[in-house]
Amino acid sequence: MKKLWQFIEYLLAKAALALMTVAPVRFTLAFADFAGWLIFHLLPRRARIAVDNLLAARVASDRRAARQTGCRCFQSFARLIAESVVARKQINPKNWENFVSFEASPEGLALLHNPKQGAIIASAHLGNWEVAARAVSMIRPVSVIYRPLNNPWLERELHGGRGGDQLHLISKYKASPMRFVKLLAAGDWLALMIDQHIHEAGERVRVNFFGRPCWTTRSVAMMHLTTRMPIFVALAARTGPMKFKVHLQGPIQWQRSGNREQDVLAITQSLTDEIEKVARKYPEQYLWGHRRWRE
């Protein structure tokens, strides 16, 4: 039964992707908005998670406002899929600047254009993280750690064409820290999402996000402390139809204190604070519909 449902899911996604590939961009984005609205209303449990998170984070003042922002956040996620399909077709090394701009310090921009300097990128589920990675890959090699979808057909369909000349996808299930260290040493920028709940005791650290404690990965901090490669927080906010601004905060260089766990906590909290700052600016673009704050 599960396989049958997965296959139906795959066929529906394939049909939607085929439609997006041939349809005008405006139609594709409007269709995504409608799909996001529909999913918000068809999945009340998921919608409730988003609404409850928005209220608990005090981003929305009341339930009505939380539902409005929650619905827009679902639309934002549907847009991400549509935009990513369009981006694969349209964004290339010659025209990417028509779609994406960078907001970064002069030092950050210099490192972005230095092909020999590796860096660790802490990102989050805000705006369009796919386009952000693609845009950076127009300038330099990027390796992105991602979580494969549970549906194997959908996984092949969606992630098969996600990579690029300088954009490499690494399944989190095939990842190892020493592989990451090698990529960094070779000059890659290594991107990880740091706003997901982590189950494994040795791999997580407790930080505050929107004033509430949650678990997040220790990987970024530990890779920085071990390799001394600079860290950036990179988040691509949507500023218009197929227009994005990448907030590239950094480079961050942490001085070791000698107390490993204290360093890990301080670094991870500072990265999380940066993400919160941008998420507060664009609350409707953050993925509120996942169970971020778990015990």
Partner: peptide
């Protein structure tokens, strides 16, 4: 090593031996 515990080990080596490792050497 269980996932990132190898990085913990590298950190502890530097602190304990009072040396600084280089990423190019580590790999």
């Amino acid at each position: 090593f269980d996932s990132i515990s190898i990085l913990d080990f590298m950190y502890d080596i530097e602190a304990d031996f009072n040396v600084q490792t280089d990423v190019a050497d580590l790999v």
